Amino acid sequence: MQAIATTKVTILRGTSTDAYGDEQDTDTPVATGIPASLIEQTRRVTTRDNPTPRIVRYAVVRLPAGTDVTDQDRLLDERTGVKYIVDADSFMTNPAMAVDIRLDARRTT
């Protein structure tokens, strides 16, 4: 891992259907104790429909190359207990070395 790890995370995955037919997360651990660089950031956003600026918080997460993580997985920060949902992933390639996986995530708890 090239990034400096700031915490360890557990990757949670899976869904089930409740008695009403609604989908809900099962939080089944796929992997635990994965070193991660997790940095929360903010961005000022406006749209044409609503020009009032809003502050959007998100996290940039970097995991070691080859980590089994997909879009919509949940990440549990083992240090703080906060859960994040993966919004987008970036698997960049480098012919000389394996690079970290970069994820955009939103805080869910």
Rank of each mutant, 00 (worst) to 15 (best):
M1L: 11
M1F: 00
M1H: 10
Q2F: 03
Q2W: 00
A3T: 12
A3D: 01
A5G: 08
T6C: 07
T7Y: 00
K8N: 15
K8T: 15
K8L: 05
K8S: 15
T10W: 06
I11C: 08
I11G: 08
L12P: 02
R13I: 06
R13N: 08
T15I: 09
T15Y: 06
S16N: 12
D18P: 07
D18V: 08
A19G: 06
A19M: 11
A19H: 06
Y20P: 05
Y20V: 05
Y20T: 14
G21Y: 06
G21F: 00
D22F: 09
D22I: 06
E23Y: 05
Q24W: 01
Q24K: 10
D25K: 09
T26Q: 12
T26K: 06
D27E: 13
T28N: 12
T28A: 14
P29N: 09
P29L: 12
V30S: 09
V30H: 00
T32I: 04
T32L: 05
I34P: 06
I34F: 01
P35C: 11
P35G: 07
A36E: 01
A36I: 03
L38C: 06
L38D: 03
L38K: 08
I39S: 13
I39P: 05
E40G: 12
T42P: 02
T42L: 08
R44F: 00
V45I: 14
T46C: 01
T46Q: 15
T47Y: 04
D49H: 02
N50I: 03
N50A: 09
N50G: 01
T52H: 08
P53E: 15
R54P: 03
R54N: 08
V56T: 09
R57V: 07
R57N: 14
A59C: 08
V60G: 02
V61H: 08
V61L: 10
V61S: 05
L63D: 02
P64R: 01
A65V: 05
G66A: 11
T67I: 08
T67S: 15
V69E: 01
T70D: 12
D71A: 09
D73I: 04
L75D: 04
L75F: 05
L76T: 01
E78T: 06
E78S: 09
R79H: 09
T80S: 15
T80C: 02
K83D: 00
V86M: 01
A88V: 11
A88N: 12
A88I: 07
D89W: 07
D89G: 14
F91Y: 10
M92A: 14
T93S: 13
T93D: 14
N94A: 05
P95Y: 05
P95D: 15
A96S: 12
A96Y: 10
M97R: 14
V99R: 11
V99W: 00
V99E: 03
I101P: 01
R102I: 11
R102A: 15
R102H: 03
R102G: 01
D104M: 12
A105S: 06
R106N: 10
R106W: 03
R106Q: 13
R107T: 00
T108S: 13
T108K: 13
T108R: 13
T109G: 15
T109V: 13
